[in-house]
Design a protein around this nucleic acid. Structure first.
Length: 731
DNA sequence: ACTTAACGGGAATAA
DNA sequence: CCCGTTAAGT
């Protein structure tokens, strides 16, 4: 069948031997173990093209799952140019969540769901959980909604239902009850959370023979990218769907598994081998992305992890610029270093778009942003405050969601008094009581209250106006486009007046609303349901467009799958990477190491590694200096621009400290620093010159010194840690 | 009912 | 530092 499996076939042109073997393998379960930059997306794309062209597979028989919508779009685009748009469009290509959402909508009746169910995002989940905690009379300090949601999420990822939740402790008991209550509330609101999308789909395929047969026939060929980051629910879906035709083609790299905290289980690779014994495996080891030096550095880091298959990544890009390791004084200087290097790179022919700056936590972006602004460098930020979770956007979407489904109590509560229209907590309690009595949604309770009450007090009038407005939107929703509906909502609520309060912030919020309006206007035919689904399932990186020429700021997690000519990895310190919350568990530390590996392997030509000696925490400078990340110790000097021992002579001791004993921020004993300065002490400041200490006191763990300087400078308050001053002899 | 100020408590990663 | 919550004032 594959007689043309040589490099003369146009579809195989430019593939290496390993890739070609992977692309042309016969139908059946296949696992492609692909190192970073080894062209796995390419293999996946060519594999699909190959199946369509040479194996008599029809596009509608294909389900291809990617990790982000962006990856799906790219693959779609590539296939479009290879084969023509029509065949690319007939496939089901997208993320697990998007694919499940589509399937669940189609099968909603079967599952007792409304076909127009809403997808509840993190905010919505929290709202619901807070309500549940309150209803159960729990102390939200002791049972934090976040913690409960986490536990529930883990359970869902493992397909554990409330009734089956294992109870070993009292806390578990509470989780089980909260879980049940939470699910009930979601269903009452016609909502599914992200985890539900996967769990419901998996359960349907497990328990409904008719459904599973139907979809096995539909999706005869399944391909999965980033398989190492699938969770149990996702695995069950794949296993169920592929059970008959056994055409399951997955691409994975265990070294890039960085999502175990949201249920991803790299052991799915082992399960795959067990459940599909006829599995054929391929290894892609040639790297087309990075220079040899970068690859060597990355390999040195990842090689320290136990329980992994050793790989021999190689590249033809021999040599390359060695890595720059930079120690900054604090996060500000670190950011300035990045900015200055960026300017230098720009002068040497790089564009802004070539450069990415990565960090472990979103909070770290602030210092970088400030520095980029100071240096006038355009940047864009991935993540931080997602577009769709901004207040103004959520408000507008809240109105729209209410028009879409008035029984959505979460949206109802969000917008019932936005902009303020005189509906306070008192009034809402009445509505809530009525809803409870009727066992209905808030909106229906409101309608019923309005019917009964003939008296028109202030509150009733406001409520009535609101109800009328919503009713009109519901009617309108059938007739106009989503954009039309949004226009009407904005007009009816006077939202512009409300949001544009004259402040800059108000202006920018209104711009966001207009941006939302513009996004909607681009697709005039999209249905309200599809629009709301898309909105719920966009990922941060999905918004990345190549057109903007700006430096990209993003977390290491969102960097997965991306590549840049120049990469800065910042904040490589103990407590940050590895993160302090992961340091007690070797398994989690190993994942932190993989995170670093992922970051390093994003770089094509130049890689900078930076850490700060002192880093602020919650606005205040840490009293203890940071230690460089333990992972850096595994970098051989040979890949560094400046050998370490030369650079680090003065503070060599910090490297010699066994890193596993390094105190974390959280656990370190509160040291009680002695006051360095005393009233009357004469001092010499590097900048202000000679002065006399008026007062010195502890503020938190900081020593705050008040000094009177001469030369007309006057009194200054200084942190001793920030402004070390020389003590002068008394006279 | 709404606005504002003061307070306390708390940070990881995301569809 | 930023958030949400609460108290007091308009």
């Amino acid at each position: 069948m594959v007689s043309m499996a040589d490099n003369t076939h146009p579809l195989l042109h430019g593939l290496n031997d390993q890739q070609r073997a992977a692309v042309t393998t016969s139908v059946g379960p296949a696992l492609v173990l692909a190192g970073p930059g080894s062209g796995k997306t390419r293999v996946l794309t060519h594999r699909i093209a190959w199946m369509l062209a040479e194996m008599h597979v029809s596009p509608w028989q294909i389900l291809a799952v990617t990790f982000t919508n962006k990856a799906a779009r790219e693959m779609n685009h590539r296939l479009g140019t290879m084969l023509g748009d029509a065949s690319a469009r007939a496939m089901m290509l997208g993320t697990f969540h998007a694919a499940c959402a589509r399937i669940l909508r189609r099968e909603a009746m079967r599952l007792g769901l409304s076909p127009d169910f809403l997808i509840f995002d993190t905010d919505d989940q929290l709202t619901v959980m807070k309500q549940v905690v309150a209803d159960m009379g729990l102390d939200d300090k002791r049972y934090r909604p976040h913690a409960l949601l986490n536990a529930i999420s883990s359970a869902k990822n493992e397909l554990i239902l409330p009734a089956d939740y294992p109870v070993r402790t009292y806390f578990d008991e509470i989780v089980a009850r909260a879980y049940a209550q939470y699910q009930q509330t979601l269903r009452k609101n016609d909502g599914l959370d992200f985890d539900d999308l996967l769990m419901e789909a998996a359960r349907m395929f497990q328990t409904d023979p008719e459904a599973v047969h139907q979809y096995r026939d539909r999706f005869q060929h399944i391909l999965v990218d980033e398989f190492q980051d699938t969770n149990i629910a996702q695995y069950v879906i794949l296993k169920q769907l592929a059970a008959d035709h056994r055409s399951l083609y997955v691409v994975a790299d265990e070294d890039q598994s960085i999502y175990s905290w949201r249920g991803a289980d790299y052991r799915n690779i082992l399960r795959l081998r067990q459940d599909f014994p006829e599995l054929v495996e391929f290894l892609l080891e040639e790297n087309y992305r990075s220079t040899q030096v970068i690859l060597d550095g990355a390999q040195a880091i990842i090689a320290q992890n136990a329980d992994r298959t050793p790989k021999h990544l190689f590249t033809e890009k021999k040599g390359g610029q060695p890595l720059t390791l930079h120690e900054a004084y604090d996060e500000q200087e670190e950011a300035d270093f990045v900015a200055k290097e960026t300017l230098r790179l720009l002068r040497s022919g790089h564009t802004h778009g070539d450069i990415a700056v990565m960090y472990r936590t979103n909070a770290q972006s602030r210092a970088l942003e400030e520095s980029f602004i100071r240096h006038n460098i355009p940047y864009r930020l991935i993540g931080a405050t997602r577009f769709y979770s901004r207040k103004e956007i959520k408000d507008v979407l809240g109105f729209v969601r209410l028009a879409h489904n008035p029984d959505d109590d979460v949206s109802f509560m969000r917008v019932v008094n936005v902009p303020p229209r005189g509906i306070g907590s008192r009034t809402l309690t009445n509505v809530a009581t009525e809803a409870q009595r009727l066992g209905s949604s808030l909106y229906r309770a409101l309608l019923s209250l309005l019917e009964c009450k003939s008296s028109a007090g202030r509150a009733e009038r406001a409520l009535s106006a609101f109800a009328t407005m919503v009713a009109q939107w519901i009617a309108l929703r059938q007739e106009v486009s989503v954009a039309g509906l949004i226009d009407r909502v904005l007009a009816d609520t006077d939202y512009e007046m409300f949001i544009r309060d004259g402040s800059d912030q108000g202006e920018s919020r209104w711009e966001n609303v207009l941006a939302l309006r513009a996004v909607v206007a681009e697709e005039p035919d999209v249905s309200l349901t599809d629009f709301l689904t898309d909105v719920a399932l966009v990922a941060d990186v999905d918004e990345l467009s190549e057109e903007v020429d700006a430096v990209t700021l993003l977390t290491l997690h969102s960097a997965k799958g991306l590549e840049y000519p120049v990469v800065f990895l910042t904040g490589l310190e103990e407590g940050l990477l590895p993160h302090s919350r992961s340091m007690e568990s070797p398994v989690e530390v190993a994942e932190e190491r993989r995170l670093l590996y992922v970051g390093m392997t994003r770089a094509e030509q130049r890689l900078y590694l930076t850490y700060a000696f002192r880093r602020s925490w919650r606005g205040f400078r840490d009293s203890e200096p940071s230690l460089p990340s333990r992972f850096l110790e595994d970098l051989p000097d040979s890949v560094l621009k400046q050998p370490r021992n030369q650079r680090r002579q003065a503070t060599k001791s910090s490297w010699a400290t066994p890193s596993w004993r390094a105190p974390s921020r959280k656990t370190e004993a509160p040291t009680r620093p002695e006051l360095q300065y005393r009233t009357g002490q004469r001092v010499m400041h590097a900048f202000y010159g000679e002065g006399m200490v008026l007062e010195s006191e502890l503020e938190g763990r900081q020593e705050m010194v008040t000094v009177l300087f001469g030369n007309g400078i006057g009194v200054k308050k200084l942190l001793s840690s920030m402004a070390p001053m020389e003590l002068l002899p008394q006279h």
